[in-house]
Deep mutational scan, measured.
Amino acid sequence: AVTGSQTALLLRAFEKDRFPGIAAREELARETGLPESRIQIWFQNRR
């Protein structure tokens, strides 16, 4: 499950760019500790 702090970080990124590229998703994966594929799905679901 995604924690509150991970969600906050993802929401901030989403406000800046609703369609992040692979580099941005990989950076978010490093920052959150989540797999990049999970980040991609999160953005798809959020849109």
Rank of each mutant, 00 (worst) to 15 (best):
R47P: 03
P35E: 11
R46I: 09
E26I: 10
T32C: 06
L28P: 00
Q6V: 13
F43E: 02
I41T: 07
L11P: 03
T32A: 04
G21W: 02
T7F: 14
Q44C: 02
E26K: 14
E36P: 11
F19E: 07
I39Q: 03
I39H: 02
R47V: 09
L11S: 04
D17N: 13
R46D: 02
L28D: 00
W42D: 00
R30V: 08
T32N: 00
S37N: 08
D17E: 09
N45W: 06
A1P: 13
N45L: 14
A23G: 09
T32S: 05
F14N: 01
T32E: 02
L11G: 03
R47L: 09
R47M: 10
L28V: 02
A23M: 10
L10Y: 00
R38Q: 13
P20A: 03
F19D: 08
P20K: 03
D17R: 03
T7I: 13
A23D: 12
V2Y: 10
K16H: 10
Q6H: 06
I41N: 08
R38L: 15
E27L: 15
R30Y: 06
G4P: 15
E15V: 10
A23Y: 08
E15D: 15
I22F: 12
A24L: 06
G33S: 04
A13D: 01
Q40L: 13
A13K: 03
P20M: 03
I22K: 13
E36K: 04
I39G: 01
Q40E: 13
R12S: 09
V2S: 04
F14D: 00
R18P: 15
G33I: 01
R38N: 05
Q44V: 12
A24R: 09
P20C: 03
E15A: 11
P35C: 14
I39K: 01
A29S: 14
F19Q: 04
E27H: 11
T32R: 01
A29I: 05
R46Q: 15
K16L: 09
R38P: 02
L10W: 00
E26A: 13
E36Y: 05
Q6M: 12
E31Q: 15
R18S: 10
F19W: 10
P20D: 01
R38K: 09
R30D: 04
A1W: 12
P35N: 09
F19N: 07
P35Y: 01
I22E: 11
A8N: 08
Q6S: 05
E26R: 13
A24N: 04
N45T: 09
A13V: 08
A1Y: 14
R46E: 12
Q44Y: 10
I39P: 15
L11N: 12
T7R: 10
A24Y: 06
L9K: 06
F19M: 06
R18T: 06
V2M: 15
A29V: 06
S37R: 08
I41Y: 09
L34T: 00
T7G: 10
G33T: 03
F43R: 00
R47H: 05
A29C: 07
T32Q: 01
L9A: 11
G33E: 02
R47F: 05
A24H: 05
P20H: 02
A1D: 14
R12D: 08
E15F: 12
N45H: 09
E31L: 15
A29M: 08
G33L: 03
I41Q: 15
L28C: 00
R47E: 06
A13Y: 13
F14E: 01
L28Y: 02
I22Q: 10
Q44D: 11
F19R: 03
K16W: 06
S5L: 15
R25A: 03
T3K: 06
A13L: 08
F43P: 00
A29W: 02
S5R: 13
A13G: 03
G21K: 07
E26S: 07
E31M: 14
K16R: 09
A13W: 09
R25T: 09
A13F: 12
I41M: 14
G21N: 12
P20G: 01
T32L: 11
L11I: 12
G4V: 13
E36D: 06
I41H: 10
G21L: 04
R25P: 00
A29E: 04
E27M: 08
V2Q: 12
S37C: 14
R12M: 10
D17P: 00
R12L: 12
L11V: 12
Q40N: 13
A8W: 08
A23P: 04
Q44E: 15
R38H: 12
T3A: 05
L34W: 12
I41R: 08
R47Q: 08
I41V: 09
L28S: 01
R30A: 08
T7H: 14
W42T: 01
E31I: 15
G4D: 13
A29Q: 05
L9T: 09
L11D: 05
A8D: 11
P35M: 06
F43C: 00
K16M: 09
F43T: 00
F14Y: 12
P35V: 05
I39V: 09
S5F: 13
A13I: 05
F14V: 01
F14W: 11
E31F: 08
A24K: 10
A13M: 08
N45C: 11
E36L: 07
I22L: 14
R46K: 14
R47S: 05
R12V: 09
S37D: 11
I22M: 13
L11C: 12
R12I: 12
G4E: 15
R38V: 15
T32P: 00
Q6G: 03
T32V: 07
G33C: 02
A8S: 10
W42I: 01
G4C: 14
E31C: 07
A24M: 12
T3V: 06
P35S: 15
R38S: 13
L10M: 04
Q40H: 07
D17S: 07
R30M: 08
S5I: 12
I22N: 10
A13C: 11
A23T: 10
L34D: 00
I41W: 11
T3Y: 04
F14K: 02
P35T: 14
R12C: 12
K16P: 04
D17T: 05
G4R: 15
F14I: 01
D17G: 05
R47T: 05
A13Q: 04
R18F: 05
P20S: 02
N45K: 12
T7L: 15
G4M: 13
R38C: 14
G21P: 09
I22C: 11
A24F: 10
L9H: 06
A24I: 11
F19G: 02
E26Y: 10
E31V: 10
D17L: 04
T3I: 06
S5V: 11
A29F: 02
I41D: 11
E36N: 05
I39L: 04
L9Q: 08
Q40C: 15
S37K: 09
R18N: 10
R18K: 13
L28W: 01
R18G: 04
A29Y: 02
R46H: 08
S5Y: 14
A1K: 14
R18M: 14
E27K: 13
E36Q: 09
Q44F: 07
L34E: 01
G4N: 14
E31D: 09
F43M: 02
Q44N: 09
A29D: 00
S37H: 11
A8V: 12
N45G: 06
D17K: 03
Q6D: 04
L11H: 06
V2P: 13
L10E: 02
Q40F: 12
G33A: 04
A29T: 05
R30K: 14
Q40V: 13
S37Y: 12
E26H: 11
I39S: 01
Q40S: 08
A24E: 11
P35H: 07
L34F: 04
R46L: 07
L28M: 05
P20Y: 02
Q6W: 13
L10T: 00
T32F: 01
W42E: 01
A13P: 01
I22T: 08
Q6E: 04
A23I: 13
Q6I: 09
N45A: 11
S37V: 10
L34V: 04
I39E: 01
A23F: 10
F14S: 01
R12Y: 08
R12F: 10
D17H: 07
T7N: 13
N45Y: 10
R25N: 02
P20R: 00
I39W: 01
R25Y: 12
W42S: 00
F19T: 05
R30E: 06
K16D: 07
A13N: 04
T32M: 05
E15I: 10
Q40R: 15
R38D: 14
E15G: 07
A23R: 08
I22V: 13
A29G: 06
S37Q: 11
I41K: 12
I39C: 02
A1V: 11
L9C: 04
L34Q: 01
I39M: 01
V2G: 04
P20T: 03
G33R: 03
N45V: 09
A13E: 04
V2L: 15
G4Q: 14
N45R: 08
F43V: 01
Q44T: 07
F14G: 01
Q6Y: 05
R38I: 15
R30W: 08
Q44K: 07
A8G: 05
G21Y: 02
E26Q: 13
Q6K: 05
A24V: 14
F19A: 05
F14L: 03
A13T: 07
L11W: 06
R18D: 05
R47A: 06
R12H: 09
